[in-house]
Nucleic acid binder design. Structure first.
Length: 652
DNA sequence: CTCTATGAAGTTTTT
DNA sequence: CTTCATAGAG
């Protein structure tokens, strides 16, 4: 461990001392070696990390020897900006990003050691599912009657992903994810193997592989690990409660040379277990690390903090939050009749607040699942209240953008079967069979060390001169924006007109996409940003200018954010807590979600419920679980809240 | 083989 | 509102 830099402990610079309270200062100055900082909601966690980095720099640590792993790319960027402001210096060289960004950067260099090429494609969840489907179908052809009952791709994917992220055996994973499928253990194992083979063939990794392969690389090549790890004198991990086993292994490896691993998080806010995250990482890490607790809450009023303390999830590390703010009002519970009346109540609250002079961007509506906001969205539209959606379909998940991306991906990685078939099928008379055969031609010629053009020409495309020329010319473009422009002008604009009813707005999206792409120097950087962190949502992408808007988001999407007024809707057993979670007895995660939701509020918190549960428009049967223990609102002691009824005016 | 029409079924959260 | 499977026409 590095001991060389802390002679200055008693001489902490003013610019740090003046900005932090005693708990924060303790964590900033004394965290070293293996340290765990448990920072409650609103406790200035970002501030602590910012000043930790500033303090390290003050003590002569070069920022390029610091690694900061955050949950989102945006968080990393924000942190860098803040450090720049505080230290008045350029820290461009610090490595900061999500696990996926950090691992991706490493793999782009060492993919060869794992049997991949460095220009590998990153498969998003949908593409990965397509690859698994290929594997499953190949297998299906060989097993006769059994094929009828073979589990669906997404179930198999869930099991595989679980196994990879938890480092558990396939058998154990099946038993934990979907125990009734244990009789298919051998089938799933075979399909998994096939899936892995195809990914290598087409030079592609899924999201889990990015992490798993990095861990494997470190396990196999101690020299490479030594080389990378010796660079990072300090490794800082934010949102530690949402890390999984593999991620813990990776940061432990990365900090193995200097031994400085500082984890920051709040186990009560662990809400990503479906992705393999384990809040237990916090408890286990606590056993052999120095612990710092930060329990002062600067964000919320005492009334809100009282409620929060009452609702601390079970199994959390003990904590009691202290508010330092002045009183305003108790949280308000509003019981409405149904979805529609709830939306009316929300609109009424928002209007009231806007009349009081609050800016729209100080107000947020939170919910458990996207569909719970549908009725509200219509109401807000009709009342002309501007809002932005943080949840919902991402820009790059829309069909037209995925189409365009497939052309970019084949230029980057000509082995990418998924993108080739997607791109080819956009031309008339080319369906899935032809597309696969063309791909196989290309694949063979690439493997025979011939160039791509020969592969194209020897393929079936020679019958279709236009399409052939289109692809030959495509590969002469280099930058992302050139490629998009080429595809759009020479094919997609026309295709879009013939295919989509809303081609106008889709084409506008693509034009915007060209502008975004123009900001990236290389195709690789652009694709990396798109697949790993591009976070533009469909609705906001079509807005002309940035205006102040009310935020609508899932609780997951609200992580790390705060608003003066927070309105949490549809807290009905079955909606929130989620019905599936209740059935599968995963209520503790729902408790943590509730905790995250109510701790987003600075001044005012409204919690809405309905007498009748929300009807999921996509679901035949919606269940309402009225059992008392599943109703979060019934758990709240009366003294902490004010209760209102809207009077069911529409119905009585 | 492609393309379209039809009906059925599946639904949480996302780097 | 999707995606998936199937049938039938070209």
């Amino acid at each position: 461990m590095d001991e060389d830099i802390f002679e200055l402990e008693t001489n902490i610079p003013e610019f740090i001392k003046n900005e932090l309270d005693s708990e924060q200062l303790e964590a900033v100055v004394n965290s070293r070696g293996r340290s765990l900082i448990i920072a409650g909601p609103g406790s200035g966690k970002t501030r602590v990390i910012t000043y930790k980095i500033a303090y390290l720099m003050y003590n002569g640590i070069n920022p390029k020897n610091i690694l900061l792993v955050t949950f989102t790319r945006a968080a990393a960027k924000e942190m860098i900006e803040r450090v720049k402001n505080v230290t008045n210096s350029d820290i461009e060289e610090m490595t900061a990003g999500t696990f996926h960004h950090v691992c991706n950067a490493i793999l782009r260099r060492y993919a060869g050691k794992l049997g991949y090429k460095n220009n590998f494609t990153i498969l998003d969840s949908e593409d990965a599912k397509d690859v698994l489907k290929i594997a499953r179908n190949e297998y299906k052809e060989n097993i006769g009657d059994r094929a009828q009952k073979l589990p669906k791709e997404n179930v198999i994917m869930k099991i595989i992903s679980y196994s990879k992220n938890t480092l558990k055996s396939l058998r154990e994973s099946i038993l934990e994810v979907s125990s009734n499928l244990i009789e298919y253990e051998n089938d799933i194992e075979y399909i998994w193997q096939k899936y892995a083979e195809i990914k290598k063939d087409i030079n592609a990794m899924d999201y889990d592989d990015i992490l798993v392969n990095t861990a494997v690389l470190f396990r196999m090549n101690k020299e490479i690990l030594q080389f990378i790890s010796s660079k990072y004198r300090y490794v800082l991990v934010d949102e530690f409660q949402d890390t999984n086993k593999i991620q813990l292994e990776i940061v432990e490896a990365l900090s193995s040379v200097h031994g400085n691993l500082i984890a920051v998080g709040d186990d009560s806010q662990s809400i990503y277990s479906f992705r393999g995250a384990r809040f237990e990482n916090v408890k286990e890490f606590m056993e052999n690390s120095t612990l710092f607790k930060i329990q002062t809450n600067y964000r919320s009023t005492p009334e809100i903090v009282n409620l929060v303390n009452e609702m601390i999830p079970l199994n959390s590390v003990h904590k009691t939050l202290k508010s330092v703010r002045n009183s305003i009002d108790k949280p308000i519970i509003i019981e409405t009749f149904d979805d529609l009346e709830q939306s009316e109540a929300v609109v009424k609250i928002i209007k009231e607040k806007l009349d009081e002079g609050l800016e729209p961007n100080e107000i947020a509506v939170l919910y458990r699942s996207h569909f719970l906001s549908m009725t509200l969205q219509q109401k807000l539209d009709s009342k002309k209240i501007p809002y932005r959606l943080l949840s919902g379909k991402r820009f790059i998940e829309t069909a037209h953008i995925k189409d365009i991306l497939s052309f970019l991906k084949i230029v980057q990685n000509p082995y990418d079967k998924i993108s080739w078939t997607r791109a080819l099928k956009l031309f008339p008379k080319i369906g899935s069979k032809t597309a696969v055969r063309v791909y196989e031609n290309i694949f063979d010629s690439l493997n025979d060390n011939k160039n791509l053009e020969i592969g194209l020409e020897t393929s079936l495309l020679k019958k279709n001169k236009n399409v052939l020329n289109f692809f030959v010319e495509l590969f002469k473009n280099n930058t992302a924006s050139d490629i998009i422009e080429y595809v759009f002008k020479n094919h997609y604009k026309e295709y879009s007109k013939l295919t989509f009813k809303d081609s106008r707005s889709r084409n506008m999206d693509i034009e915007r996409f060209i502008e975004i792409a123009d900001k990236y120097e290389t195709l690789e950087k652009f694709l990396e940003e798109m697949t790993l962190s591009e976070n533009i949502k469909v609705s906001s992408s079509r807005k002309e200018k940035e205006e102040k808007e009310v935020t609508l988001t899932t609780i997951h999407g609200s992580k790390g954010l705060e608003w003066k007024v927070v309105i949490l809707i549809s807290v009905n057993p079955g909606d929130f807590p989620n019905g599936m979670a209740i059935r599968e007895k995963r209520i503790d995660e729902e408790e943590r979600l509730f905790y995250v939701a109510i701790t987003r509020a600075k001044n005012e918190l409204y919690i809405l419920k309905q007498v009748t549960g929300t009807v999921n428009p996509y679901m035949r049967n919606s269940f309402v679980f009225m059992k008392k223990e599943n109703d979060f609102i019934k758990r709240i002691p009366n003294q902490y809240i004010k209760k209102l009824k809207t009077g069911y005016k529409r119905y009585f």
